[in-house]
């Protein structure tokens, strides 16, 4: 455990960039059963006070998936992804993410701990997403649980 912490705690991964497309937001919104026109129609979005079509609340996680950020940490740590489950997910929103934005992100390992004498390992990462104006848009907090038995 201490060796893992020493090697990976505080490690930052390569920054990534993802473009947020209007059609992708619509497809995402439809797949989650969302019907609010702000996610499909630019005029409806701007009428509701948004710059453009806003990304739904959990869409930022897909931005990180598109950039291959869900498995890179496990691969780096040599963890079999079949033993890993998503334990917890958090979002802190600072600026809206909208269609047309170019999002840059970076993932960092902020905690590693175990429970049950190492039978379960918890890997906690933070991913900061900034927009094309260098404004912090959202912060993602992910907990991955690895069964180590």
């Amino acid at each position: 455990m201490e060796a893992l912490r020493k090697r990976f705690l505080g490690k930052e991964y390569e920054p990534f960039t993802v473009e947020v497309e209007k059609g992708r937001i619509a497809q995402f919104a439809r797949s989650i059963g969302e019907g609010n026109p702000i996610y499909f129609d630019t005029e409806a979005a701007t009428k509701a006070g948004y710059r453009a079509i806003p990304a739904p609340l959990t869409f930022p996680y897909s931005v990180t998936m598109d950039a291959g950020q869900s498995f890179n940490v496990l691969e780096d740590m040599g963890v079999d992804k079949n033993r890993a489950v998503h334990g917890e997910q958090g979002f802190t929103y600072h600026h809206d993410i909208c269609a047309g934005d170019t999002i840059t992100g970076q993932q960092k390992i902020v905690d590693i701990y175990d429970k049950k004498s190492g039978a379960m390992i918890f890997i906690v990462t933070e991913t900061r997403l900034s927009n094309q104006h260098d404004e912090l848009a959202a912060n993602l907090h992910s907990v991955i649980v690895v069964r180590n038995t």
């Binding site: 969302e34 948004y50 739904p56 609340l57 959990t58 998503h86 997910q89 979002f91």
Partner: peptide, 29 residues
Amino acid sequence: HGMLMMAILGQMLSGWVSQARIKKFSSRF
């Protein structure tokens, strides 16, 4: 998908208040 369940939970929030009012949203699976 855990994130599909969370997306549905998020819709409860954004159906209640405008999503621009939501500052934090977290969930344990």
